[in-house]
Design a protein around this nucleic acid. Structure first.
Lengths: 351, 351
DNA sequence: TTGAAAGCGCTAACAG
DNA sequence: CTGTTAGCGCTTTCAA
């Protein structure tokens, strides 16, 4: 039994406002506003107002409310790219938690470009977000310091920066796992396809990797380190550059992420080198496609990180102090790092 | 030489408003408002106001403006999941075009759940978006009809629905390409791992596939059709169900997307069947990882679709009528569909 | 409890 | 071209 709505001149059903409710109930607009923020069963008036609201299909206008309250009921997330499935996953988790708490999430992607980062954050701010989830922090503190100076609650996720609250994986430990595993598999000649060097995460992973090797008196030769970014294309290019030189390695760690590893694998295959047989390849993140790819990789609890980040940010908005989280990674061994017949001619011997 | 800002009691620098500018220039607030919407060199006043704005670091408050104008300077996009890299790509392209035109983009993901679809669209609407890019349309018209009835400019992308403006790939043609290719490769026994049946797209691909086979008097046996969704996990499950029965097929088309194909490949490998040697597998979309995976697939110009969708929506907001686009797909042949030695024992013969 | 009134920051008539 | 005025829909003092 819906009560007919007022119609504006052009025939569009006008969205009911507080005023509409006031007219229908005979109460004052401010009374309505108050009643609506109470539980429906808080008082007879509240009950009346809520049922009227329901019948008329009233939905509060968050932008009008936020103009007045200076809060928006929204949180902002800035990612480097949603095309990175790990970041997309984080977003979806953040969104889920936020919605469960009555918040909306606005996302923006920056492509890790410092200018875009600032523009996008300002955009979110101008839309009045109550807090920020930052998934594209850089190693040099500038960006994050700027965020902190804004005076808006924030939390970093996936990437960390010293002195700032962050929910991330213990990447150093992850790198160590990779190094130890490859050593155990019998490898002795290691290459590294590094992530972007603005990313503390990739840096830490590489450090862990190097540390594990160092314990066995092994180091990664300088000419066996190449940048590989975070994408298939950049990973592929990195491996191609590696292959252009002497091919004296039997194992490579793609510290950026699994996509970079996919790219590396693709370059290896193109060069007639069989990943997992001729050269071990290890990635990072354990995205869904890694299984089909038979890629050995380090699993970090990405989804949980996203949930935690949202939870902590919401708490921070309510005045709590975020507590940093360092999650434990685990190694997922698949065919791409199968034990090599070490005595076989090394790839490098070909040249 | 920044003029010192007013400081609010707590020491936070107060954001300058039109009033601040009015005080500094001695002009009236409405004059400021107007001048700001003109080019800086439109008049002496405009120049004055713009430079004052710059010095004070003024940024217009879009939420206040939108309260007044009933436009938000934002467009909304609803995706089924940003975890689907194709949808994420579309989002990034839409965002890029929108930003270039002075618009922001708000995204929301619905998981293809009808209730979530409505909730999320209402959310975007309550944030006052000026138009909608819908990337999660369903085959049954309900959702899209509802959108259309809203009276807000909209355009569908990636998925289409008869009678509504959509920017999509010619999926039927894509399915045909797959069928023709596999026939040429010498296959005669075909399976189908279908996409979700709420997706017109997957449906069309399957139809095209079947049509191509039919021209050679071949049809896909009923027991060789399984649902495979849009994710690695669901694709894998689909293939597992297929393998549980008689294995009398040498080629399978995963109509959902490449991820479903990755899942199928993973299931094949787990069963000791070599994709590309024992069974041809073909996907759809040509995501970046497909190359490393050596997956034969159909490339659709996803990025272009995203750009077009944004362009058309922006035009529609300005009163234009969107013109549907049907982009031509192309087949990317890789190792996963290598010519089989057809006379070899068929997989099905094992049982 | 409820009502009256002011105002968030901006834009859009309408006058001057 | 500029200033006056009103008001978008909501919340929040302050009185009654």
């Amino acid at each position: 039994m819906p009560i007919p709505l007022d119609n504006s001149p052009d025939g569009q059903a006008a969205r009911p406002t507080l005023r509409t409710l006031a007219e229908h109930t005979g109460l004052h607009i401010s009374t309505i506003s108050r009643a609506l923020r109470q539980a429906p069963d808080a008082s007879p008036t509240a009950a009346l107002v809520h049922s009227a609201a329901e019948q008329l299909g009233y939905r509060r206008d968050p932008v009008a409310a936020s103009l007045r309250t200076r809060r928006s009921g929204a949180i902002g997330m800035v990612a480097h790219s949603l095309t990175d499935i790990a970041q997309a996953l984080i977003y979806e988790q953040v969104d889920q938690v936020a919605v469960a708490h009555g918040y909306d999430v606005l996302v923006a992607a920056t492509g890790d470009d410092p200018r875009a980062q600032r523009r996008r954050v300002e955009l979110l701010l101008s839309r009045r977000v109550d807090g920020l989830v930052i998934a594209d922090a850089h190693r040099d503190g500038e960006y994050v310091e700027w965020i902190a100076a804004l005076g808006v609650p924030y939390v970093l996720v996936m990437r960390s920066s010293p002195g700032h609250p962050s929910i991330a994986c213990d990447d150093y430990a992850g790198g160590r796992l990779v190094g130890e595993h490859l050593i155990e598999q019998g490898h002795r000649d290691f290459a590294l396809i590094a992530g972007p060097d603005y990313s503390a995460v990739s840096w830490d992973r590489a450090e862990g990797y190097r540390a594990a090797l160092a314990e066995h008196g092994i180091s990664v030769a300088e000419h066996l380190v190449e940048a590989g970014g975070l994408h298939t294309t950049t990973g592929r290019a990195g491996m191609e550059r590696l292959l252009d030189r002497r091919r004296d390695f039997t194992a490579v760690f793609c510290a950026g992420n699994d996509f970079a590893a996919f790219g590396a694998i693709s370059a290896l295959k193109a060069a007639g080198i069989e990943p997992g047989t001729d050269v071990a390849v290890v990635g990072f993140n354990d995205v869904a496609a890694a299984e089909a790819m038979e890629l050995t990789t380090v699993a970090s609890p990405v989804a949980e990180l996203g949930q935690l980040a949202a939870t902590q940010l919401l708490a921070a908005i309510d005045g709590a102090t975020p507590t940093p989280v360092r999650a434990e990674p685990s190694l997922i061994v698949r065919a791409s790092s199968a034990t090599p017949l070490y005595e076989m001619p090394r790839v490098g011997a070909l040249r």
